[in-house]
Design a protein around this nucleic acid. Sequence first.
DNA 1: GTCTATAGCGGGATAGAC
DNA 2: GTCTATCCCGCTATAGAC
Lengths: 204, 204
Amino acid sequence: MENRRASTENEIIKVALKVFTEKGYKGATMRDIAKAAKVNLAMLNYYFRSKENLFDIIFEKSFLLIYEKLMGAFSSKKPLFEKISAFSNAYIDTFIDNPAIPNFIFNEITHNPAHLANKIKDNQPIMEMINTFQQQIDEEVEAGTIKPVNSFELLLNLLALSVFPFIAKPMLKEVFGFSDLNFGALLERRKTSVARFVINAIKL
Amino acid sequence: MENRRASTENEIIKVALKVFTEKGYKGATMRDIAKAAKVNLAMLNYYFRSKENLFDIIFEKSFLLIYEKLMGAFSSKKPLFEKISAFSNAYIDTFIDNPAIPNFIFNEITHNPAHLANKIKDNQPIMEMINTFQQQIDEEVEAGTIKPVNSFELLLNLLALSVFPFIAKPMLKEVFGFSDLNFGALLERRKTSVARFVINAIKL
DNA sequence: GTCTATAGCGGGATAGAC
DNA sequence: GTCTATCCCGCTATAGAC
């Protein structure tokens, strides 16, 4: 059954993302992944040929998800403050639905920065979107309609405020004793509060 | 010579921090570390008994460094805005001098969140410092001297803005083509601009 | 497609000579 | 203290029965 096969593959990809994230590429064993996905070890190689190929598939999927959501939120011609809201909302929303992805991506950034960087650099629409956003900021600073800020730093700050809570989540939950429910509520609030914070920081 | 031994040990610890950070705990091999430190493989075990013990020593050292710098900057009775400046300045300054530590710590947070979390939870001075800071924010909100903000979110934002550029650094450098010098200059600027950004976001 | 068994290799740790 | 040689385990990947 083609459907059966596809659903088994998707199940493996889903749990493998989690195992790779929690243990790192080398730390995650094919035995771990097989056990978590409740399939035989040999089946993993039957479906995915190799550990590296399985990892690449997951990386590709994760990148595509982020890419599509962000292009939708960020690309159109909107006023600056609306873009800031749309960006943080899209980012936070995507990661609420896919909580393993931020740490998965950050592992990869740390251990193989060129991999993701090249995918971004080689992607013209992304680079244009970033340039347009920075130009928009520079123009508003020039026109005196927002406080003077470095446009790259503002982009960095927006990204930091949106992403950081997800990568720090495992520890924040332990230290401050958040339940899943409470931490989820915090993240929901941030879909609006991050943009409010950033806009307050730069508006006159 | 006791000094010779101590300096060899320190050299190993220094390069091992880098190798563990770049490759992760499992990905880093004792052979990698020996090669990078220019010592024989057997010497590593002679000095540190095991890979795990070497890792623990590095973790302990990294934690202590952050702990001491932050306690100095954050503990005294200062007005809120001064604390915000002192906090971000101390954090960023420490990581400029020790650029591998943020990613090292974040690897550990991802793969073993309870380890660092327990060290923080069990440390009364830290927890008191955090509580005091949050109270201070709540009181100012109550008194109407700053905009209404959730005190935990403000703490989280301050941390995010200070730390995120360091953990994203490897990729940011590749994507935006920063030289070490240019990225260093950006980080230097952030020693003051992060506090300014946060203060602008909450002041009336 | 699914399983068991195993080949083959890389890595942590140590024995033992110097 | 320093080195070489090696033990031994655990992992990826695959052969081959069903």
